[in-house]
Simulated scan of single mutants.
Amino acid sequence: MRHAEEVTFGGSGLDRAAELRERPEELERAMADPDARAVLLWRGKPLVAEDALVRLPLGHPALEDAAPGRTLLGRENGAVVVAADLSGWEPEGGVPETLGGFSDTSEQAHPAVEGAAFADLRRVMTRLGPRDAELAATARALFGWHGSHGFCARCGAASEVALAGWQRVCPSCGARHFPRTDPVVIMLVTRGNSVLVGRAPGWPEGMYSCLAGFVEPGETIEAAVRREVREEVGVEVGRVGYLASQPWPFPASLMIGCHGEATSSDITLDPVEIEEALWLSREELADAFAGTHPKVWPARDGAIARFLLRNWLADRLD
Protein backbone atom coordinates (compact mmCIF):
# COMPACT_ATOMS: atom_id res chain seq x y z
CA MET A 1 0.00 0.00 0.00
CA ARG A 2 2.11 2.85 -1.34
CA HIS A 3 0.36 5.58 0.64
CA ALA A 4 0.14 3.61 3.90
CA GLU A 5 1.85 6.27 6.02
CA GLU A 6 -0.78 8.86 5.14
CA VAL A 7 -2.84 7.44 8.00
CA THR A 8 -3.22 9.67 11.07
CA PHE A 9 -0.23 9.19 13.42
CA GLY A 10 1.44 7.51 10.45
CA GLY A 11 4.77 9.13 11.13
CA SER A 12 6.56 12.33 10.20
CA GLY A 13 10.18 11.23 10.08
CA LEU A 14 10.78 12.56 13.59
CA ASP A 15 14.36 12.22 14.81
CA ARG A 16 13.72 10.55 18.15
CA ALA A 17 17.27 11.27 19.33
CA ALA A 18 17.41 7.85 20.99
CA GLU A 19 21.12 8.19 21.68
CA LEU A 20 20.39 10.96 24.19
CA ARG A 21 18.32 8.61 26.36
CA GLU A 22 21.49 6.97 27.62
CA ARG A 23 23.50 10.20 27.88
CA PRO A 24 21.90 12.19 30.72
CA GLU A 25 24.59 14.87 30.84
CA GLU A 26 24.35 15.47 27.11
CA LEU A 27 20.56 15.55 27.34
CA GLU A 28 20.73 18.06 30.19
CA ARG A 29 22.88 20.35 28.06
CA ALA A 30 20.46 19.97 25.16
CA MET A 31 17.54 20.91 27.41
CA ALA A 32 19.41 24.03 28.52
CA ASP A 33 19.43 25.24 24.91
CA PRO A 34 17.05 28.24 24.55
CA ASP A 35 15.58 26.54 21.47
CA ALA A 36 14.54 23.42 23.40
CA ARG A 37 10.80 23.05 23.65
CA ALA A 38 8.18 21.16 25.67
CA VAL A 39 4.76 19.89 24.70
CA LEU A 40 2.26 19.70 27.55
CA LEU A 41 -0.37 17.07 28.31
CA TRP A 42 -3.08 17.10 30.95
CA ARG A 43 -4.52 13.66 31.68
CA GLY A 44 -3.77 12.53 28.15
CA LYS A 45 -4.99 15.71 26.46
CA PRO A 46 -2.38 17.74 24.54
CA LEU A 47 -2.17 21.51 24.71
CA VAL A 48 -3.20 22.87 21.32
CA ALA A 49 -3.87 26.26 19.78
CA GLU A 50 -6.16 26.23 16.74
CA ASP A 51 -4.72 23.45 14.54
CA ALA A 52 -1.27 23.11 16.11
CA LEU A 53 0.41 21.44 19.05
CA VAL A 54 1.78 24.09 21.40
CA ARG A 55 5.52 24.04 22.08
CA LEU A 56 6.75 26.08 25.04
CA PRO A 57 10.23 27.07 26.21
CA LEU A 58 11.36 24.85 29.07
CA GLY A 59 11.36 27.85 31.41
CA HIS A 60 7.74 28.76 30.72
CA PRO A 61 5.62 29.39 33.88
CA ALA A 62 3.09 26.73 32.87
CA LEU A 63 5.69 24.02 33.47
CA GLU A 64 5.72 24.90 37.16
CA ASP A 65 2.53 22.81 37.40
CA ALA A 66 4.13 19.81 35.70
CA ALA A 67 5.25 16.62 37.41
CA PRO A 68 9.02 16.27 37.95
CA GLY A 69 11.04 14.98 35.05
CA ARG A 70 10.71 15.43 31.31
CA THR A 71 10.19 12.73 28.70
CA LEU A 72 12.35 13.02 25.61
CA LEU A 73 10.32 12.90 22.41
CA GLY A 74 12.97 13.78 19.87
CA ARG A 75 14.74 16.55 18.07
CA GLU A 76 13.44 19.26 15.74
CA ASN A 77 15.67 21.63 13.81
CA GLY A 78 18.62 20.64 15.99
CA ALA A 79 16.81 21.26 19.32
CA VAL A 80 15.23 18.69 21.61
CA VAL A 81 11.50 18.39 22.23
CA VAL A 82 10.33 16.94 25.53
CA ALA A 83 6.94 16.21 27.04
CA ALA A 84 5.69 17.47 30.40
CA ASP A 85 2.78 15.97 32.32
CA LEU A 86 0.42 18.43 34.01
CA SER A 87 -2.08 15.81 35.18
CA GLY A 88 -1.78 17.02 38.78
CA TRP A 89 -2.95 20.52 37.84
CA GLU A 90 -6.57 21.31 38.71
CA PRO A 91 -8.34 23.33 36.00
CA GLU A 92 -11.03 25.84 36.76
CA GLY A 93 -14.32 24.02 36.66
CA GLY A 94 -12.85 20.72 37.78
CA VAL A 95 -12.52 17.46 35.87
CA PRO A 96 -15.23 16.85 33.24
CA GLU A 97 -17.34 13.69 33.43
CA THR A 98 -16.58 13.06 29.75
CA LEU A 99 -12.83 12.72 30.36
CA GLY A 100 -11.60 9.47 28.84
CA GLY A 101 -14.94 8.75 27.20
CA PHE A 102 -15.72 8.06 23.55
CA SER A 103 -16.32 11.74 22.95
CA ASP A 104 -14.85 14.44 25.16
CA THR A 105 -15.58 17.89 23.76
CA SER A 106 -14.43 19.76 26.87
CA GLU A 107 -11.33 21.94 26.85
CA GLN A 108 -9.19 23.10 29.77
CA ALA A 109 -7.30 26.39 29.48
CA HIS A 110 -4.19 26.93 31.57
CA PRO A 111 -3.96 30.51 32.87
CA ALA A 112 -0.30 30.83 31.90
CA VAL A 113 -0.86 30.00 28.22
CA GLU A 114 -3.08 32.42 26.36
CA GLY A 115 -5.06 31.24 23.35
CA ALA A 116 -4.50 27.51 23.96
CA ALA A 117 -6.33 24.67 25.69
CA PHE A 118 -5.99 21.00 26.50
CA ALA A 119 -8.18 19.03 24.08
CA ASP A 120 -9.00 15.37 23.56
CA LEU A 121 -6.51 14.00 21.04
CA ARG A 122 -9.13 11.89 19.26
CA ARG A 123 -11.16 15.04 18.63
CA VAL A 124 -8.31 17.14 17.22
CA MET A 125 -6.06 14.49 15.64
CA THR A 126 -7.17 15.17 12.07
CA ARG A 127 -6.49 18.89 12.50
CA LEU A 128 -2.88 18.37 13.49
CA GLY A 129 -0.05 18.09 11.01
CA PRO A 130 1.89 14.80 10.81
CA ARG A 131 4.71 16.00 13.11
CA ASP A 132 2.36 17.40 15.74
CA ALA A 133 0.25 14.24 15.64
CA GLU A 134 3.30 12.00 16.09
CA LEU A 135 4.59 14.04 19.03
CA ALA A 136 1.20 14.11 20.73
CA ALA A 137 0.59 10.39 20.21
CA THR A 138 4.04 9.47 21.51
CA ALA A 139 3.69 11.62 24.61
CA ARG A 140 0.20 10.34 25.37
CA ALA A 141 1.24 6.71 25.02
CA LEU A 142 4.31 7.15 27.23
CA PHE A 143 2.47 9.01 29.98
CA GLY A 144 -0.29 6.44 29.90
CA TRP A 145 2.25 3.63 30.30
CA HIS A 146 3.97 5.33 33.23
CA GLY A 147 0.61 5.92 34.87
CA SER A 148 -0.30 2.23 34.81
CA HIS A 149 3.12 0.65 35.32
CA GLY A 150 4.47 2.30 38.43
CA PHE A 151 5.32 -1.00 40.11
CA CYS A 152 7.69 -3.77 39.13
CA ALA A 153 5.92 -6.70 37.45
CA ARG A 154 8.53 -9.07 38.88
CA CYS A 155 8.61 -8.20 42.59
CA GLY A 156 5.95 -5.52 43.11
CA ALA A 157 8.25 -2.76 44.35
CA ALA A 158 7.80 0.82 43.15
CA SER A 159 9.86 1.36 40.01
CA GLU A 160 11.72 4.48 38.87
CA VAL A 161 11.79 6.33 35.58
CA ALA A 162 14.95 5.92 33.49
CA LEU A 163 16.27 6.60 29.98
CA ALA A 164 14.55 9.98 29.72
CA GLY A 165 11.13 8.40 30.17
CA TRP A 166 11.66 5.34 27.95
CA GLN A 167 12.26 2.80 30.71
CA ARG A 168 11.36 1.99 34.31
CA VAL A 169 13.89 0.32 36.60
CA CYS A 170 13.13 -1.55 39.80
CA PRO A 171 15.52 -0.50 42.59
CA SER A 172 14.66 -3.67 44.51
CA CYS A 173 15.26 -6.51 42.04
CA GLY A 174 16.91 -4.63 39.16
CA ALA A 175 14.26 -5.53 36.57
CA ARG A 176 13.99 -3.19 33.61
CA HIS A 177 10.63 -2.45 32.01
CA PHE A 178 9.97 -0.83 28.65
CA PRO A 179 6.91 0.95 27.22
CA ARG A 180 4.09 -1.41 26.30
CA THR A 181 2.54 -1.48 22.84
CA ASP A 182 -0.20 -4.02 22.17
CA PRO A 183 -0.53 -5.37 18.59
CA VAL A 184 -4.09 -5.23 17.30
CA VAL A 185 -5.24 -6.53 13.93
CA ILE A 186 -7.92 -4.50 12.21
CA MET A 187 -9.45 -6.13 9.20
CA LEU A 188 -10.84 -4.87 5.92
CA VAL A 189 -12.77 -8.06 5.11
CA THR A 190 -14.20 -8.20 1.60
CA ARG A 191 -16.16 -10.66 -0.51
CA GLY A 192 -16.57 -9.63 -4.11
CA ASN A 193 -18.12 -6.17 -4.22
CA SER A 194 -18.95 -6.10 -0.50
CA VAL A 195 -17.12 -5.20 2.70
CA LEU A 196 -17.84 -6.42 6.22
CA VAL A 197 -18.49 -3.83 8.94
CA GLY A 198 -19.68 -4.10 12.51
CA ARG A 199 -20.43 -2.09 15.62
CA ALA A 200 -19.68 -2.73 19.27
CA PRO A 201 -22.22 -2.25 22.07
CA GLY A 202 -22.24 1.32 23.33
CA TRP A 203 -20.96 2.95 20.15
CA PRO A 204 -22.68 6.11 18.88
CA GLU A 205 -25.82 5.34 16.93
CA GLY A 206 -25.09 4.48 13.30
CA MET A 207 -21.33 4.10 13.67
CA TYR A 208 -19.86 1.03 11.97
CA SER A 209 -16.21 0.09 11.55
CA CYS A 210 -13.86 -2.69 10.54
CA LEU A 211 -13.56 -5.63 12.93
CA ALA A 212 -10.50 -5.66 15.17
CA GLY A 213 -8.90 -7.64 17.96
CA PHE A 214 -5.70 -8.23 19.92
CA VAL A 215 -3.02 -10.57 18.62
CA GLU A 216 -2.56 -13.43 21.09
CA PRO A 217 0.76 -14.93 22.24
CA GLY A 218 2.13 -17.48 19.79
CA GLU A 219 -0.09 -16.17 16.99
CA THR A 220 0.77 -14.72 13.59
CA ILE A 221 -0.95 -11.64 12.25
CA GLU A 222 -2.69 -13.73 9.60
CA ALA A 223 -3.96 -16.23 12.16
CA ALA A 224 -5.21 -13.42 14.39
CA VAL A 225 -7.20 -11.93 11.51
CA ARG A 226 -8.89 -15.25 10.75
CA ARG A 227 -9.57 -16.07 14.41
CA GLU A 228 -11.00 -12.67 15.33
CA VAL A 229 -13.37 -12.56 12.35
CA ARG A 230 -14.50 -16.11 13.00
CA GLU A 231 -15.04 -15.47 16.72
CA GLU A 232 -16.83 -12.15 16.34
CA VAL A 233 -19.11 -12.77 13.34
CA GLY A 234 -18.64 -16.40 12.25
CA VAL A 235 -17.22 -15.49 8.83
CA GLU A 236 -14.32 -17.55 7.46
CA VAL A 237 -11.34 -15.69 5.98
CA GLY A 238 -8.84 -17.12 3.51
CA ARG A 239 -6.08 -14.98 2.07
CA VAL A 240 -4.75 -12.22 4.34
CA GLY A 241 -2.44 -9.37 3.35
CA TYR A 242 -0.90 -6.43 5.20
CA LEU A 243 -1.99 -2.90 4.24
CA ALA A 244 -0.92 -0.26 6.77
CA SER A 245 -0.41 0.38 10.47
CA GLN A 246 -1.36 3.10 12.91
CA PRO A 247 -0.10 3.89 16.41
CA TRP A 248 -3.24 4.27 18.50
CA PRO A 249 -2.40 5.67 21.95
CA PHE A 250 -5.81 4.98 23.52
CA PRO A 251 -4.17 3.69 25.55
CA ALA A 252 -1.32 1.80 23.85
CA SER A 253 -2.02 -0.13 20.66
CA LEU A 254 -0.43 -0.60 17.26
CA MET A 255 -3.26 -1.12 14.80
CA ILE A 256 -2.14 -3.52 12.06
CA GLY A 257 -4.39 -2.97 9.07
CA CYS A 258 -4.97 -6.09 6.96
CA HIS A 259 -7.05 -7.12 3.98
CA GLY A 260 -8.85 -10.40 4.45
CA GLU A 261 -10.71 -12.19 1.68
CA ALA A 262 -13.80 -13.89 3.07
CA THR A 263 -14.63 -17.43 1.97
CA SER A 264 -18.10 -17.37 3.57
CA SER A 265 -20.73 -14.71 4.10
CA ASP A 266 -23.19 -15.94 6.74
CA ILE A 267 -22.96 -13.86 9.93
CA THR A 268 -23.25 -15.34 13.42
CA LEU A 269 -22.63 -12.68 16.07
CA ASP A 270 -20.77 -12.87 19.35
CA PRO A 271 -23.16 -10.47 21.14
CA VAL A 272 -20.62 -9.64 23.84
CA GLU A 273 -18.22 -8.20 21.27
CA ILE A 274 -20.45 -7.18 18.38
CA GLU A 275 -23.90 -5.61 18.50
CA GLU A 276 -24.47 -5.85 14.75
CA ALA A 277 -22.49 -6.69 11.63
CA LEU A 278 -23.45 -6.43 7.98
CA TRP A 279 -22.12 -6.54 4.44
CA LEU A 280 -22.08 -3.26 2.53
CA SER A 281 -21.75 -2.99 -1.22
CA ARG A 282 -19.40 -0.35 -2.67
CA GLU A 283 -22.44 1.69 -3.58
CA GLU A 284 -23.80 1.51 -0.04
CA LEU A 285 -20.41 2.42 1.44
CA ALA A 286 -20.21 5.39 -0.94
CA ASP A 287 -23.57 6.53 0.37
CA ALA A 288 -22.29 6.13 3.95
CA PHE A 289 -19.28 8.34 3.25
CA ALA A 290 -21.54 10.86 1.56
CA GLY A 291 -23.80 10.92 4.62
CA THR A 292 -26.83 9.68 2.68
CA HIS A 293 -26.99 6.09 3.91
CA PRO A 294 -30.10 5.65 6.10
CA LYS A 295 -28.28 3.59 8.72
CA VAL A 296 -24.46 3.67 8.51
CA TRP A 297 -21.69 6.18 8.99
CA PRO A 298 -18.17 4.77 8.67
CA ALA A 299 -15.81 4.86 11.65
CA ARG A 300 -14.24 7.84 13.38
CA ASP A 301 -12.46 10.35 11.16
CA GLY A 302 -8.72 9.80 11.65
CA ALA A 303 -9.02 6.14 12.59
CA ILE A 304 -7.30 3.55 10.40
CA ALA A 305 -10.65 1.83 9.82
CA ARG A 306 -11.97 4.87 7.97
CA PHE A 307 -8.66 5.09 6.07
CA LEU A 308 -8.93 1.46 4.93
CA LEU A 309 -12.60 1.71 3.99
CA ARG A 310 -12.08 4.90 2.01
CA ASN A 311 -9.13 3.43 0.10
CA TRP A 312 -11.03 0.22 -0.71
CA LEU A 313 -13.87 2.35 -1.99
CA ALA A 314 -11.42 4.27 -4.19
CA ASP A 315 -9.72 1.03 -5.31
CA ARG A 316 -6.39 2.16 -3.83
CA LEU A 317 -5.28 -0.88 -1.81
CA ASP A 318 -2.27 -1.62 -4.06
Rank of each mutant, 00 (worst) to 15 (best):
D33P: 00
R127K: 13
D51G: 11
F9Y: 15
T268Q: 13
F9T: 06
A139I: 03
A158V: 14
F214E: 14
M207L: 13
G192C: 10
G74R: 03
S265K: 10
A277F: 00
A224Y: 02
K295T: 06
P204E: 00
P179S: 08
V39A: 04
E222V: 07
G101Y: 06
N193F: 02
S245I: 08
E276M: 00
R122A: 12
H110I: 01
L317Y: 12
L142D: 05
L309V: 10
E283F: 09
D266Y: 09
D15N: 12
T190Y: 04
S281L: 09
H177Y: 08
A290N: 07
G257I: 04
P179L: 06
I274S: 00
S87V: 10
L47Q: 02
V272M: 12
D85R: 10
E6M: 12
F250S: 08
E25Y: 06
T220E: 07
A305E: 12
R168S: 13
C258P: 01
L196E: 02
W297K: 00
S245K: 10
V82I: 00
E276Q: 02
E273V: 09
D15R: 02
E22A: 15
E231V: 10
A67Q: 13
A136C: 09
L269R: 07
E205Q: 10
E28L: 13
A303S: 15
P57A: 11
G93H: 08
N77W: 14
W297T: 04
V7W: 01
G94H: 05
V215W: 02
E284K: 01
L313P: 07
W248I: 04
R230Q: 14
F9M: 09
